[in-house]
Nucleic acid binder design. Sequence first.
DNA 1: GGCAACTAGGTAACCGGTTACAGAAACAAA
DNA 2: TTTGTTTCTGTAACCGGTTACCTAGTTGCC
Lengths: 347, 347
Amino acid sequence: MTTLRDVAREAGVSVATASRAINGHSNVTAPTKAAVLAAVKKLNFVPHSGARSLTRRKTDTVGVILPDLFGEFFSEIIRGIDLVAHESGMHLLLGNMHGSTHETAAAIAAMRGRVDGLLVMPPDVKPELLSGYLDPALPTVLLNYDAGSLDLPFVAVDNYHGAYAMTEALLERGAQQVVHIAGPKHNRDARDRQRGFADAMAKIAKVQSPAILPGDFSEESGAQAARLLVQGRLPVDAVFAANDQMAVGLIAELAGSGVSVPGDIMVAGFDDIPLARHLNPSLSTMQVNIDRLGSTAMMMLLRILRGETLGAASATILTPTLVARGTTGGAVGVAANEKTPVVGARP
Amino acid sequence: MTTLRDVAREAGVSVATASRAINGHSNVTAPTKAAVLAAVKKLNFVPHSGARSLTRRKTDTVGVILPDLFGEFFSEIIRGIDLVAHESGMHLLLGNMHGSTHETAAAIAAMRGRVDGLLVMPPDVKPELLSGYLDPALPTVLLNYDAGSLDLPFVAVDNYHGAYAMTEALLERGAQQVVHIAGPKHNRDARDRQRGFADAMAKIAKVQSPAILPGDFSEESGAQAARLLVQGRLPVDAVFAANDQMAVGLIAELAGSGVSVPGDIMVAGFDDIPLARHLNPSLSTMQVNIDRLGSTAMMMLLRILRGETLGAASATILTPTLVARGTTGGAVGVAANEKTPVVGARP
DNA sequence: GGCAACTAGGTAACCGGTTACAGAAACAAA
DNA sequence: TTTGTTTCTGTAACCGGTTACCTAGTTGCC
């Protein structure tokens, strides 16, 4: 493992000069610089980033702490982050809290001295706890989490208005009895979507306590809700699931019970996962550009690293857009212009 | 930012003692240790991992270099790696070569001094080039890439036998005219799958030059192949696409042209992406446990880090399993036991 | 020619930890 | 009491870079 000392010796200069030559400082004559670079090439020298970041007090790395790594949702976030990070020559250090609050603390602590900033998505951690884990000296942007009291910048999806809009759309299509399948109780996204649904039902349909079935964002819980609906003979002509996965489970189960979608019941989801457009009938949903979530957060973090001061006031709220497809009678099959993008397709 | 020096001063001991107390060395008396730990708590000290790894000469981090981050394929690999890495207290540093060979070199070089080992997936980089980029002193495991000449351990999918098996299955189902849609020409996976197909056709159906249409793993290229088939009026009763994405595009386009699947043409893919089981009819395919690819590679890397010597001989080949579904007439709709696993479902 | 201003490059301190080595204290054995 | 052994703690070197500061050599100007 060749070090800068080796290079300096080979080139017949001091380590200081070698360092300067390599880093392109001006006060090195051309021949000296050439000699150093020749030595670098000859010895195959690659600077030791660890040592480098120790003195420079920057690591060119950002820590990304996610609750989990399952599914397209997180992979899209990571891709969005990477897109921006890569442009600025930043690296990504992945931390996974594996769903446990305790591990969150560990994951954040382990980042000290490895990263210049942090992107954290802590869906079920209480703000008070979170503030104890976070290092105030380490620039941090929160993903999909509004911890206003901490005054940290964040990027979130406007779940409330998204859910409101979707509910409104269902009602406009003629639905009278809309049932909501909720997400996990402690999950903020889920709660906001439920609120949006309830408010829309109250204001537009004048229904004060609409039917809400429990769910946990899993496909199976969607199927379960379908069984409840069918067996319970609830009066239903539309179902709004808090996410697409549950809608998928619901539709499969309804089909099995001979219920026609959208003939008997309209169905809508939330997220627009890639699967949504390929279902038959295709799934109406609220489209969230998940990668934007990541790239926006990363851009905010870069601004902080460049010296700007960003607080909760600089938060970005991404608005989801409604995509009407087959399950609400909007369209049948895959629309021609709705193919999955070609970029980077892989086996 | 509190350092070990601060802690030592606060506790009234030397840095050496403080370090020993924190790291649980035996030669520290109980009261001294308690004093140090009290100081740690009081000052909220978290060791600086960067400095730590400089002296210990290990970073507890592995570098993961992937060609891209698009889609479930990569996210599953990362999840598999993380699963194993997390158990051993290792962190993941993500490097993305963004499809370019030139960036591959940069990505690998940037890892020096940041990681203890490397997991690299270099699908379109020539072995000769790759060997120039890699540091022989840095433990490395290759993903889905057999660079036998470099004598590096690797984990790969048995694409050849998978394709052979699928072709065989189509023929057994009564297909006479099987057409293959190939993947990118330079892609190893694609080439191996094509070879498997061709060999099966030769051996079983005694067809020496079966029809092969070009493709690039993208959905659009599958649709294009469908148009060729329909317009060209090729004699076809089964199509084996080199990956699921192309099969998806193909099926959508066939449906648009009034061709019935599997009635007129059977269709099969490769990979078993989550979407596959949800299509209508559901897609027959070769199931690859992608996360296993990542976790197996990570386990091999850990063995090397523990001192074992692993070469190309220790390679692991994962065998894909055939999943017969609707598009080959095997089953209709979503089979009851084929729901997506519940674990970690997210919005 | 003499002095100031500038430039290239060397010396050594430093980043924040770990650890080899040495010294001091405590205790046991002679 | 003296010496040997053990146990705990401190001093300082080190990991591999960066950079403040300093020196020596040039050049410029009066």
